[in-house]
Amino acid sequence: MATDEIPDETDHTGTDRVELTRDPESRIARVTLTDPDRRNALSTELASGVVAALDRLEGTDTRCVVVAGEESAFSAGGDVEAMVERADADEPLDDAVRHVIQDTGRCVRRLYESEFPTVAKVTGPAFGAGANLAIAADVLLFHADARIGFGFRNVGLAVDSGTSFLLPRLVGDNVAAELVYTGELLDADRALELGIANHVFDAETFEREAEALIEEIASGPSVALRTSKRLLRADSPSLGQAIRNEASAQAAVFDTQDHAEGVSAFVEKREPEFEGR
């Protein structure tokens, strides 16, 4: 897909519950969950909208993707109203399982597997599958009032949408087990302490501090950062294999304009100006 096909203005990706915007200068893309009346719950429509937005960006020169929830919530998680409707309609169990895999699970996986550096701006509650969507991002920035929890047990369910993979990678097996078994709702400081949040910013500075970090990521050498992301996410069985994977990947990055600019800037003792090429 050509770069100029990506929207530089608001684009609703087939639903009014997800908004995709992209700044042509910074090349920062923003995926915003826009169903605040339901606290941005991951309904079939919203989850599909997130996938569509990320698909629109694939293969472009986007430098960073930011995911956020509109108004006071990041995402309340699974669509409880839809769960009630399915139960009342005596929906077949296969349909419920299909929803987890094709809707919420696919949405979380699509963000996790995005080729670009990704940032979640968590300004309010992120629960259940919504918490998984947040931790599927590479970097999590928390508003001081944000909360996150994996309380599937509170609605009588086992974990889903990637919890069993994503959460232990962040906090370790034993802490993940406790969070799942108790359904503990973490405030921002506790999330920072456990390594879920990268930063916590207070109400007065959140937007300024978050945007400064997002711009710093976006101004980096994009090809190198995307390559580094692939290496960080790779399941290397040993240090030796990791080094070999890195060496192979580095060969392609050596030929980029940004590498040449980085070397020149180092020699000339100035800040590099990376173009993302």
Results as ranks from 00 to 15, higher is better:
residue 110 R to Y: 08
residue 111 L to M: 09
residue 112 Y to M: 09
residue 113 E to L: 14
residue 114 S to R: 05
residue 115 E to V: 06
residue 115 E to D: 06
residue 118 T to A: 12
residue 118 T to V: 11
residue 119 V to E: 04
residue 122 V to S: 03
residue 124 G to T: 00
residue 124 G to I: 00
residue 124 G to E: 02
residue 126 A to W: 00
residue 129 A to K: 15
residue 129 A to L: 12
residue 129 A to M: 14
residue 132 N to L: 00
residue 134 A to Q: 01
residue 139 V to D: 06
residue 140 L to C: 00
residue 141 L to C: 09
residue 142 F to G: 06
residue 145 D to E: 13
residue 145 D to G: 15
residue 150 F to E: 08
residue 151 G to Y: 04
residue 151 G to M: 02
residue 154 N to Y: 15
residue 155 V to H: 14
residue 155 V to Q: 15
residue 156 G to N: 04
residue 157 L to F: 12
residue 158 A to G: 12
residue 159 V to N: 14
residue 160 D to E: 13
residue 163 T to E: 08
residue 163 T to Q: 11
residue 163 T to G: 08
residue 164 S to N: 07
residue 164 S to H: 03
residue 170 L to W: 08
residue 172 G to P: 08
residue 172 G to Y: 06
residue 172 G to C: 05
residue 174 N to I: 04
residue 174 N to C: 05
residue 175 V to M: 12
residue 180 V to W: 04
residue 181 Y to H: 09
residue 184 E to P: 01
residue 186 L to K: 15
residue 187 D to K: 14
residue 192 L to R: 14
residue 192 L to I: 02
residue 193 E to G: 00
residue 194 L to A: 09
residue 194 L to D: 11
residue 195 G to R: 09
residue 196 I to Y: 13
residue 196 I to C: 10
residue 196 I to P: 08
residue 196 I to W: 11
residue 197 A to T: 07
residue 198 N to C: 04
residue 199 H to D: 10
residue 201 F to K: 08
residue 201 F to T: 08
residue 202 D to N: 15
residue 203 A to R: 15
residue 203 A to C: 09
residue 206 F to K: 00
residue 206 F to N: 00
residue 208 R to M: 08
residue 211 E to H: 00
residue 213 L to A: 13
residue 214 I to K: 06
residue 214 I to Q: 06
residue 215 E to F: 01
residue 216 E to P: 02
residue 219 S to K: 02
residue 220 G to D: 06
residue 222 S to M: 01
residue 223 V to H: 06
residue 223 V to I: 14
residue 224 A to F: 02
residue 226 R to N: 10
